[in-house]
């Protein structure tokens, strides 16, 4: 005779195995659905391929722009690091005072290093470099001022560099501080614009992907109207009918992301020759970076997410409109 606790054990075990069965059934149903939706795509593969191609291009455009901006940003950063400010001192300033000022400037936290070039040193260098030695000797006195070469810190923003230049120029013993940075400021502004543009374009094309997937799913539902009616007559819930379409949306997004990666790869190959020339002109200081692992992951997640959203906003509305008559 079974004890009460034995019976309870039996019942729990039965309940457990029933729950395990239903969980297994649920997982199996989803796996089946995932494959079935891929099968649906492949059965009308030309239409599917065109949709996926369009999604791929729509995803590749902002991603490509993102890669370009990222590389240009690094390039601009390297140029920033090579920026130097020339501080021209008053002509009558003694070399010792010049050296002192150079040392003082180094205490400014915006400044990385300073180098004082006295009027004599400047003249010597100029004589060597220019070959006008004899002509300069004829001048009698040295026309060159003392100069301090100030290198700002590498991480200093362009605007802060501008402020530093202005501050240096207003010092008592300084005649003029100059930095030919207008073009760099313009480049930075252009890069900023490009970066914003890639977000705007990305947003617009994301919306496009959502609508492409939505429209494709809408047509798919239209083609399967009779099938959906039959399923509803046989007692299929809305969730059951919706599931394969949602998986189709995910497939479209995922495969579209793969196409986008392919497009980016092809572009890199096509531009490879001229890129190599450009890179070699920088003596290896410049290396082109691709999307990177996290970029690839984000692209795939974006594809999946957009495919899903496009599907969800279409499927509920369309399926509610189909009722057996």
């Amino acid at each position: 005779m079974p004890t009460a606790s034995g019976q309870r054990d039996m019942r729990t075990r039965l309940a457990d195995s029933a729950a395990a069965d239903s969980a297994k059934g649920w997982a199996a149903a989803h796996a089946r659905c995932l494959l079935e939706s891929l099968g649906r795509l492949s059965r009308r593969w030309i239409a599917s391929a065109l949709t996926i191609l369009v999604i791929g291009i729509a995803l590749a455009l902002p991603s490509g722009l993102f890669v370009v901006v990222k590389n240009m940003d690094r390039l601009a950063g390297q140029w920033h690091q090579s920026v130097q400010i020339s501080v021209y001192l008053d002509n009558d300033l003694a070399p010792e005072a010049g050296q002192q000022l150079a040392d003082d400037l180094r205490d400014d936290k915006r400044v990385d290093k300073t180098q004082f070039v006295s009027a004599e040193q400047g003249l010597d260098e100029f004589k060597k470099a220019s070959g006008f030695g004899a002509a300069l000797d004829a001048l009698g006195n040295n026309p060159l001022p003392g100069v301090i070469q100030v290198t700002p810190r590498a991480n200093l923003a362009p605007a802060a560099v501008g402020e530093l230049v202005a501050a240096l120029g207003q010092r008592d013993t300084v005649a003029k501080a100059s930095l030919d940075q207008a073009w760099l400021r313009r480049l930075t502004a252009i890069l900023d614009l490009l970066s914003r543009a890639s977000w705007v374009i990305g947003l617009l094309l994301s919306a496009a992907v959502v609508f492409i997937v939505g429209n494709t799913i809408r047509l798919d539902i239209e083609n399967r109207r009779q099938e959906i009616e039959v399923m509803k007559l046989l007692g299929a819930s809305d969730a059951f009918i919706r599931r394969p379409f949602l998986y189709s949306g995910l497939w479209y997004g995922l495969l579209g992301a793969f196409v986008a990666l392919l497009v980016l790869g092809v572009c890199r190959l096509a531009l490879g020759g001229s890129l190599a020339t450009l890179v070699s002109s920088y003596d290896g200081a410049l290396a082109i970076q691709g999307l990177g692992a996290s970029g690839v992951l984000w692209l795939i997640l974006a594809g999946l997410g957009l495919g899903w959203v496009g599907c969800v906003i279409t499927v509920n509305r369309e399926l509610a409109a189909i009722e057996p008559r």
Binding site: R43, Q226, E227, E229, V230, K232, L233, L234, G235, A236, S237, D238, F240
Partner: peptide, 19 residues
């Protein structure tokens, strides 16, 4: 849907899925 699962429906045009 749950209710319909307990009723067997048979149609004049069979309503089979041809794929």
């Amino acid at each position: 849907p749950r209710y319909r699962q307990r009723v067997g429906l048979i149609f004049q045009n069979y309503n089979l899925l041809f794929d």
